[in-house]
């Protein structure tokens, strides 16, 4: 097959992207630890009863507004680079297979990792999200790691049930939602620990909660659409638009949990920590649907070749 070259190239791009993401993660980590040393210095300042002010503490904070920012910038550039490389890898995979690259779990996963990075990066154009970086690169890296080790599948044609343009619409919407839900889980999780002082660079709890709300508000209608598109596709393929198949059931559970999140945000006594916990539960439901159902449950949907 002359296509072998394409396949090899796609895999190499995916590995190159993982390596770049790994570097980005390291630089984000350096950025964070630079923050830590500042905290340590400040603590020392308090401990010594206002008398001794450590030289290091001051000189570090003087020139730069925030310590380690240049590492964060390098990390952001690397994340952009990793996303670009991954995009090429995904496109090559599609060219190799001669179809949309969403025919099996391996392909879903590399595209989902791209989805996570894309939602984060597009959002970062509008606001400063350097503090969020490491919480995005790690899940993306884990997804790619899963994809290249356990889930790897040779490219093949689609089974007939997957040959539908509703598949393209449905999966595209679901992948973007997956990225957005992951970002929302990161901000919700951070909002729960923001008062503990473990991490110094993150925004206030209130800010994080608002950001979480924004992302869920963006992804909830899209998820609704993804579910409806899936129902239309199911009607065309199997003659019923809803059959409580495990995949459908978990899509429904995910939907209901995020609806509960939006309600919680308008309910007295539920607006803050409890709402953030609900956002995390929603993400968990999404993950169960994504990995659990495909791998462990016998479902009409799990014929895509794990």
């Amino acid at each position: 097959m002359t296509n072998i070259g394409l396949a090899q190239a796609s895999n190499n791009f995916v590995y190159a992207s993982m390596f770049t993401l790994f570097l980005a993660t390291i630089f984000f980590a350096i950025y964070y630890s630079a923050g830590r040393s500042k905290v340590a210095a400040t603590k020392q300042l308090v401990n010594s009863a206002g008398e001794v002010i450590t030289e290091r503490g001051i000189s570090k904070t003087r020139g730069e507004q925030e310590p380690g920012v240049k590492y964060a910038n390098i990390a952001m550039s690397l994340t952009w680079l990793a996303a670009g490389i991954l995009l090429v890898g995904v496109i090559l995979r599609g060219l190799w297979a001669g179809r949309v690259p969403w025919g099996n779990m391996y392909e879903f996963s590399i595209t989902s990792a791209l989805g996570i990075l894309a939602v984060f990066l597009v959002w970062s154009i509008k606001r400063d999200l350097r503090w969020l970086g490491i919480f995005i690169t790690i899940p993306a890296l884990l997804t790619l790691g899963m994809a290249t080790t356990v889930l790897y599948t040779e490219a093949a044609q689609l089974v007939p049930a997957l040959k539908s343009y509703w598949l393209v619409i449905h999966v595209l919407a679901a992948i973007i939602c997956g990225g957005a839900f992951t970002v929302a889980a990161a901000t919700a999780g951070l909002s729960l620990i923001s008062d503990k002082g473990w991490i110094t660079k993150i925004p206030s709890r209130d800010r994080l909660e608002k950001l979480t709300h924004r992302i869920v508000a963006f992804s909830f209608p899209l998820w609704t659409f993804a579910v409806v598109a899936g129902a239309i596709w199911a009607e065309n393929a199997w003659g019923r638009y809803w059959g409580w198949d495990p995949k459908e059931t978990w899509a429904f559970i995910t939907w209901v949990v995020y609806a509960a999140y939006l309600h919680a945000r308008s309910t007295a006594g539920w607006k803050h920590q409890k709402a953030s916990v609900i956002a995390l539960v929603g993400w968990l439901a999404f993950l169960i649907n994504y990995f659990g159902v495909n791998i462990f449950v016998n479902s009409l949907h799990s014929y895509a070749g794990v």
Binding site: T249, W250, I253, V256, V257, A259, A260
Partner: peptide, 12 residues
């Protein structure tokens, strides 16, 4: 809403 999500789980 929570109960609805919870009640669906055994069905899957």
């Amino acid at each position: 809403l929570f109960l609805l999500a919870l009640a669906s789980i055994p069905g899957s």
